[in-house]
Design a protein around this nucleic acid. Structure first.
Length: 214
DNA sequence: AATCAGTACAACCGCCGCCCG
DNA sequence: TCGGGCGGCGGTTGTACTGAT
């Protein structure tokens, strides 16, 4: 028997999300968490499949998403990690707080791939010049050291966003939208550049305040 | 000003592995 | 032990944007 389609196509919307859909999803997850993605759209009143909701939340709506260009350090990290791990985007994303696997995948395919290829070519050229015992093991070893050096990164795992953390952590934390919206931080989490988005959600929702789940 | 090519990125698709009944 | 449901993942596509001609 064939596998059931990921969602019933009948009547379910596809394509770009509207601000209103975003707002509904955010409000619902803030209130109820996401114990069951498949059931979520129905409960929230969204004409989307669960996968679409999950992707939208993970890749765009989660408040810990870091927006904006990748720094040089981040790009180097991605190149090193890709060298070590291959196309394991989620594993790479786990080492880059605030970045999603989708975002990393995109940035890799758009320009880092070329960059890495250029570096590789350069290295190969250098290697043929110096010839000898260079071996890829040395290279791997160096890469591994680079990777190991990121072990201390604060990795935000999925448990951070569980229902419990959402409901408990959000209960007494309300972000202050006064003042500059371009930079804000709570504890050690830096949300630079992301507040315009949350401000828009607040405005379009018509609410007086928006409590963020962190 | 119009057109085209390249780039960026959001979103979808289908497969895979884990978990639970 | 097995099969189905589900979430997660990587590959791919579609489209908006931007710069060059």
């Amino acid at each position: 028997m064939g596998r059931a389609p990921c969602c019933e196509k009948m009547g379910l919307k596809k394509g770009p999300w509207t601000p209103e859909e975003d707002r509904i999803l955010i409000v619902h997850i803030k209130k109820h968490g996401h114990p069951n993605w498949r059931a979520l759209p129905k409960q929230a009143g969204l004409l989307r499949c669960g996968k679409s909701c999950r992707l939208r939340w993970i890749n765009y709506l989660r408040p810990d998403i870091k927006r904006g260009n990748f720094s040089k350090e981040e790009e180097e990290t991605i190149i090193n990690l890709h060298d070590m791990l291959g196309n394991r985007w989620s594993a790479i994303a786990g080492r880059l707080p605030g970045r999603t696997d989708n975002e990393i995948k995109n940035v890799w395919h758009t320009h880092l791939k070329k960059k890495a290829a250029a570096v590789l070519k350069q290295n190969q050229k250098a290697n043929t010049n110096t010839n000898n015992n260079n071996n890829s093991d040395d290279h791997k070893q160096n890469s591994k050291q680079n990777v190991d050096s990121f072990e201390s990164f604060p990795v935000i795992d999925e448990s951070f966003w569980t229902d419990t953390s959402l409901s408990e952590n959000s209960s007494n934390l309300t972000s202050d939208f006064g003042g500059g919206l371009n930079e804000f931080a709570i504890g050690h989490h830096d949300y630079g550049g992301g507040m315009d988005f949350w401000y828009n959600i607040l405005v379009t929702s018509g609410a007086d305040s928006l409590t963020l789940p962190f």
